[in-house]
């Protein structure tokens, strides 16, 4: 990869203001559905989180107009889109391009390698991030695919297109 995340296409209005708020409102029903589904299908991931079930994670896909707030508490799950200028202080933050983050969730990419190449930034409580990474890494199958399946053929088509585009960009960068 070796691409500076600062070179990522900037989202409209840098993820703040009216556009970001509108995007958050539109995306929220899908996020709530996705996180409930993942928790239902993969309950074992909570054990690996240990005490960090109550940690607030800020997941910041730099090329999207909003960030994501995750609190992986099985009793009170939180997964919501937030405008960057309205994000509350988080226990840990994870920052990178959207498709990299998605591929990390699915273990299609290696988190340490993304860290070495500076494509992934971590700040805050490192132990919380390590626990989240290990919990997600112990899941068999693809959370991205499961999510796409929830939306039928259009969901599958969007995911395929995103992955194809991501893979093409990586190949182009590797050959430079």
């Amino acid at each position: 990869m070796n691409t500076d995340i600062r070179d990522a296409p900037q989202p409209p209005l840098l993820g703040t203001g009216m556009f970001a708020r509108l995007a958050c409102v539109l995306i929220q029903p899908m996020l709530s559905r996705v996180v409930r589904r993942v928790a239902l299908r993969h309950p074992s991931l909570f054990a690996r989180l240990g005490s960090h079930q109550s940690t607030d994670f800020l997941i910041d896909p730099v090329d999207l107009p909003f960030a994501l707030h995750l609190r992986p508490d099985p009793q009170a799950l939180v997964f919501r889109a937030v405008p960057r200028d309205a994000a509350l202080p988080a226990g840990a933050s994870i920052r990178g391009r959207f498709m990299l983050l998605l591929e990390l969730v699915d273990s299609e990419e290696d988190g340490d390698a993304a860290f070495f190449s500076r494509d992934l930034e971590i700040t805050g409580d490192t132990e919380a991030v390590v626990r989240l990474r290990n919990a997600l890494d112990d899941i068999d199958g693809s959370i991205a695919t499961e999510t796409a399946e929830m939306f039928g053929a259009p969901g599958r088509a969007i995911l395929t297109r995103l992955r194809r585009s991501y893979s093409m960009k990586n190949r182009q960068q590797d050959t430079r």
């Binding site: 600062r6 500076r118 930034e121 971590i122 700040t123 490192t126 132990e127 991030v129």
Partner: peptide, 16 residues
């Protein structure tokens, strides 16, 4: 490096 003792700090010039 016990993870509980590790911290990464991003500086304004992009250094870490």
């Amino acid at each position: 490096s016990p993870a509980s003792d590790v911290q990464y700090v991003r500086d304004t010039d992009g250094s870490m």
